[in-house]
């Protein structure tokens, strides 16, 4: 490693596409009725991924899969400690009763964003269940939260920054690691 501060790619488009397609298949296998599934992207890294996943899943189910987004910002437990972040829209389609919400995020770490997202979704209604699908699980959990569907487990050092790059249609094309 010549330059430890430089970012380097740890996962490339092909591997990511395979992993994300497997996640779609696992979701379809666990929830056979596509009509009740709502894929909810966590702002902002999960939104494009949710959109792209809905297309893959739509093909598997043979019907369109509902998509939404959730902004965890107002439900965070560290509002007074971190820099103010821009609030983005929470858009959940229709009534959540009897629906299967699959939260989608690009990178799972402490679990605090997921906790805040669960609370945000709950303030809209009472879904039948909430699942969690992530492209990358980098570890370092601080809450008892476990993903139901994982693209790749990526052991990291706490100082490293994981970034997922997506193309225009939301497909993941690269995962990079950078030491901060």
């Amino acid at each position: 490693m010549a330059d430890p501060s430089a970012s380097h790619t740890v996962l490339e488009a092909d591997a990511l596409a395979r992993a994300w397609r497997r996640v779609a298949n696992e979701i379809a296998e666990a929830h056979t009725d596509g009509g009740v599934v709502i894929l909810v992207g966590i702002q902002r890294g999960g939104v494009a991924l949710a959109q792209q996943l809905s297309e893959t899943l739509g093909g598997i189910y043979g019907q369109a899969v509902a998509v939404g987004s959730v902004e965890p910002g107002l439900h965070r437990d560290d509002l007074s400690q971190r820099a103010m972040a821009e609030l983005r829209p929470t858009e959940l389609p229709g009534d959540l009763a009897d629906k299967v919400i699959v939260l989608i995020d690009d990178v799972l770490s402490t679990g605090r964003t997921v906790r805040a997202s669960i609370d945000a979704v709950m303030s809209f209604g009472r879904p039948q269940c909430i699942r969690l699908a992530v492209l990358i699980d980098r570890g370092h959990r601080e809450l008892p939260i476990r993903p139901d569907f994982v693209g790749k487990n990526l052991p990291t050092h706490p100082d490293e920054h994981v970034e997922v790059r997506t193309n225009d249609s939301g497909a993941p094309i690269a995962v990079t690691l950078k030491t901060q």
């Binding site: 910002g73 107002l74 439900h75 509002l79 945000a120 303030s123 809209f124 209604g125």
Partner: peptide, 8 residues
């Protein structure tokens, strides 16, 4: 929304 409150 139906629930007009956030914990911010």
């Amino acid at each position: 929304r139906d629930i007009k409150k956030v914990p911010a």
